[in-house]
Design a protein around this nucleic acid. Structure first.
Lengths: 347, 347
DNA sequence: CAGTTTATTTTGATCGATCTAATCATGCCT
DNA sequence: AGGCATGATTAGATCGATCAAAATAAACTG
């Protein structure tokens, strides 16, 4: 262990009182320039670093941001959170915060963990992911006036909707871009593979596709299939859609898992199509969502979320919440980012 | 925010002194049973939770474990750390610890971060991943007597080799199992795709394959290719190996990235083989390493690391280091776990 | 130049827990 | 009954920082 250096040691070396050292570091304006320099030199020489625990006791601020790390359920989409976490850790560090992890199996367990953590480590704020309808967590945090940001919009019609800060990626804009890309490539009958309606994220992604397709004069009705997330599910749904005689030549999918299933289906015999009734077979085009490692590995065109940016915005919102003078009347800020299409072989 | 409940509040309600409350919670043996009950009831009623910052000031223990979250370089293998992290967070919580994240671009930056963190948040221990030859980090931590465990063996010949606790997965045992699996399936000429020698992990994995193949009477010489990690690299190396007239019918790979490349190569025309000179073509068998989501998605047989277990062992080693009475003469403990083969379509 | 204002620095208390050492009971033995 | 070890509880100091307020120095005003 490094021998402890306290503010008193610095004060002694600089020939000033503890408080002056504290001021030199935290309220530079109040200390005479020459003294400040002397203190900083002493800090440098001794390698002094302010002890968080002691500071926290007095100020009530831990400079910790807590976030839940989820077990990557599906596996394929797991790395999304991972990349977000990395960005969050980096952005937080830049603002003088550190990231504390916790796990929880469901909303209720997470709320219990809130209580635990707030009692013990007193994180200054939480970042929530995977927001959903009727989220217990946001309600609890609002209720207890704990600062937080969600990565994901509040998907509820109720009053809580606009009552907290959030950052999200515009799924509809993403699928709209994907659909436009396919239209530009000459496709007309473009299908959609998604999840049963009710999930905010899924509905949003379907909406972007439907809107764009309709805008191009193609009726999206009947061209969409809903299933649970998974490669096998995607394959089945894709088969079903491609076998119908609707003439689907391309698929936009709500996730890379579904897209991967769709790719498998598209490769199975008899499901390719002949442009203009010609002889050359062209495989069905597929576009996924999230640009996971799997997409990169198999050459799947996919929509990439700007996770680093999203994380940076989360930290920015939090710091204004925490450090800034927040007018309690002011509506909470939010940020909506656009995903970008990464074009590969599949479309 | 929840209104703060301090030990003094509990003491007042229970009609005892602060110290007795502290004793009831931390040294139950020293308090009369009836008093202990009364205190616990008061704790329950008020929802008291010990404040870490205050405790840390007195005891010098933060109950924090720090670990670096890496930018998932390759993408495919990134999720390994993610799953490990989840396990670590869960195991740590069970032992009353929390996980603190940090990032660093290289060894030197990480050492700087050690200093930062130790001065500010005073984590009780570090968990290091991606250990390598001549690791600056372990040397520094040993030098400063900071408790730590590495996930990954110390890959050095020097004296530091046996001087710290570690947990690792036995790569050689994994590739040996994979090779045995292929031998059992009738393969004889089994190739290996790995990285240039010098990386401990890579050499270890190659060794398991070579040993097992030799044990079955097949000379491994010439059957191995080394390249950097990546799908394209793997494909090229696999092509090279399969085109040679050595009669390779199966490949063991050091990573899923390489294996995925090998799969692509194996599917290209003219590279299949005819068992017993028969007419039916059989694709070249491929086995990867790490059982990443990609492997699952494409049906790649792969070696799965018991990451949850590894994390649990890391925490166990740390707690004995931290809480237990460690005899300084005692050599540090270590754990070597076996990966398991997840059989899918590719082999 | 006395009287105030303003700038700079210092003293003492405090955050909430635990450590050390002292105090108060109790039981046991001779 | 006095002496003493053991058990249970408590008072006071302390960890390292910041806050609030007091003290001192420097600058300004009429």
């Amino acid at each position: 262990m490094t021998e402890k250096v306290t503010i008193a040691d610095v004060a002694r070396l600089a020939g000033v009182s503890r408080q002056t050292v504290s001021n030199a570091l935290n309220s530079p304006g109040v200390v005479r320039e020459e003294t400040r320099q002397r203190v900083l030199r002493a800090v440098e020489e001794l390698g002094y670093r302010v002890n968080q625990a002691a500071r926290q006791m007095r100020t009530g601020r831990s400079r910790l941001i807590a976030i839940r790390i989820e077990p990557d359920r599906d596996g394929i989409n797991g790395s999304v959170l991972d990349r977000f976490l990395h960005g969050l850790t980096e952005s937080a560090a830049r603002s003088g915060y550190r990231v504390l992890l916790y796990t929880a199996d469901d909303d209720q367990a997470e709320v219990d963990t809130f209580e635990d953590l707030l009692g013990a480590y007193e994180p200054d704020a939480f970042v929530l992911t995977s927001t959903h309808h009727g989220d217990l967590r946001t309600a609890w945090l609002l209720d207890h006036k704990v600062p937080f940001v969600t990565f994901g919009r509040p998907w509820s019609a109720d009053s809580a909707a606009a009552s907290h800060a959030w950052v999200d990626v515009d799924g509809a804009a993403g699928t709209a871009a994907a659909t436009r890309h396919l239209l530009d490539a000459g496709h007309r009958v473009i299908g959609f593979l998604g999840w049963p309606s009710g999930s905010g994220v899924g509905d949003d992604r379907r909406e972007g596709w439907a809107r764009t397709l309709a805008g191009a004069g193609v009726d999206p009705a009947g061209l969409s299939r809903a299933t649970s997330d998974g490669v096998a599910d995607g394959e089945k749904a894709a088969h079903d859609l491609l076998r119908s005689d609707l003439g689907v030549t391309a698929l936009v999918c709500a996730s890379d898992s579904l897209a991967l299933g769709a790719l498998h289906a598209a490769r199975s015999p008899g499901l390719a199509w002949r442009p203009g009734g010609g002889t050359a077979e062209r495989p069905v085009a597929v576009i996924g969502f999230d640009d996971t490692p799997v997409a990169k590995a198999v050459g799947l065109t996919s929509l990439s979320q700007p996770l680093g940016q999203a994380a940076a915005h989360c930290v920015a919102l939090l710091t204004t919440l925490l450090d800034g003078e927040t007018d309690p009347g002011e509506p909470p800020a939010n940020v909506l980012l656009e995903p970008s299409l990464v074009v590969r072989q599949s479309a």
